[in-house]
Amino acid sequence: MEALPKEYLGILLLLIFGVLFGVLTLLVGRFFRLSRPYKEKLVAYESGNEPTEAPRMRFSVKFYLIAILFVVFDVEAIYLYPWAVSYDRLGLFALVEMLLFIALLLVGYVYAWKKGVLQWEK
């Protein structure tokens, strides 16, 4: 336990507490609630009709593109955090360096825009 700073102990306890609360409310509810399942009730909802095809259908490739772009930009944001926190100590050099970094990123951003990745409906 020495390696674990005591602040994180509070987080860990809250996490355990949250799990317990979620599981226990569902378990306790089991003693009160009804359970009368029948076939129609257990079918996936589709406006009262029988489900027509497999629900996990093929979906648009645009969601993948968004996911890939997300990785690029999120990694960028992660690089910006330590820079932002220690900015006052780093001086002008940090500013120039970060401007270069953002400029490079903007090139990629403009490229993605021109390629139509950000255009949801064509």
């Binding site: 809250l14 799990v19 979620g22 609630r33 257990l42």
Partner: peptide, 28 residues
């Protein structure tokens, strides 16, 4: 508390049960 807990027959049961708790725990 008193409402019936319906689990659809085609659902992926462990994931279906865990999903609300994941949400709640992360937020809390």
């Amino acid at each position: 508390f008193f409402k019936e807990d319906i689990i659809p027959e085609n659902a992926d049961k462990p994931t279906f049960l865990a999903a609300p708790i994941i949400c709640l725990v992360a937020m809390m």
